[in-house]
């Protein structure tokens, strides 16, 4: 048998063996992966309203209990009306509520934004006035670690707390990521609509700013209702 044929046969057999091993591992562990991802989403929702802290390790049960006790999910249509769960269509938007003693504390909006290398998924939580941000978290992204990947770090996310999504005249401007530090780059009157940027990740910031704004525009009818109710 010539050497070439031997090499090809060896390579083919090795590929099949390695391939099937990986398929086996991936299908066998899929259940655990999905469970982890679901739990991670719940954790991020809780984190966005400040119910759990970043560096505390909590057991699965504690997180699930906290989640069922204080988070409710609902759907709204494009006019901001609440849609009953049974009648929800594909275009209706999900909103999570943080409820404490029967009172709504904050509204949590899922964010699915474009990023530099892939989608960025996270949650933006608004306080009950519908204007002030109470927190922002990211649970899935494919940005470069150390650059755009910093969006999932605490130092970046904590800057969102207390920012406003409306400008001085009450127009929806969302919260944008500045190019550099807010204190140096943005005029005083608009600082409440910006958070510090990440150096070396201008594009990630640009895409995420755009994604946040698009998401908030979709939810504007609902937000208007919330804001009016508070006045």
């Amino acid at each position: 048998m010539s050497n070439h044929i031997k090499s090809i046969i060896f390579a083919a057999v090795l590929s099949i063996v390695c391939g099937s091993l990986l398929t086996l591992a991936s299908t066998g562990l899929k259940e655990y992966h999905l469970k982890n991802i679901a739990l991670d989403k719940q954790k991020n929702i809780l984190k966005s309203v400040g119910l759990i802290q970043e560096d505390k390790a909590l057991s699965t049960d504690t997180i699930e209990e906290l989640y069922t006790n204080s988070i409710r999910q609902m759907w709204v249509d494009f006019e901001g009306k609440i849609v009953p769960k049974q009648q929800k269509g594909t275009k209706d938007l999900p909103v999570y509520l943080h409820v404490k003693n029967g009172n709504i504390q904050s509204y949590i909006i899922p964010v699915d934004s474009r990023g530099l290398w892939g989608r960025i998924s996270g949650y933006l939580a608004l306080k009950k006035d519908g204007v002030t941000v109470s927190g922002f978290t990211v649970y899935n992204h494919s940005e470069t670690p150390g650059l755009g990947g910093e969006i999932d770090k605490r130092w970046f996310q904590k800057n969102f707390a207390g920012k406003k999504i409306l400008d001085d005249r009450g127009k929806l401007v969302s919260v944008a990521i500045a190019k550099g530090r807010v204190a140096d780059k943005i005029p005083e009157s608009r600082q409440k609509n910006f958070v510090d940027g990440i150096s070396g990740a201008t594009l990630t910031g640009k895409f995420l700013s755009g994604g946040l704004k698009l998401t908030l525009i979709e939810y504007e009818p609902l937000l208007k209702k919330i804001q009016k109710k508070e006045d």
């Binding site: 050497n3 090499s7 060896f10 390579a11 090795l14 390695c18 091993l21 990986l22 591992a25």
Partner: peptide, 27 residues
């Protein structure tokens, strides 16, 4: 292992193990 493709073979084995370790960690 055929000499002429040994680096590729090594990489395949290593990559398989790394992906396996990654899957286990994720789970």
């Amino acid at each position: 292992i055929p000499r002429n493709i040994r680096i590729i073979v090594e990489l395949t084995v290593i990559a398989t193990l790394v992906i396996f370790a990654d899957q286990v960690l994720k789970a």
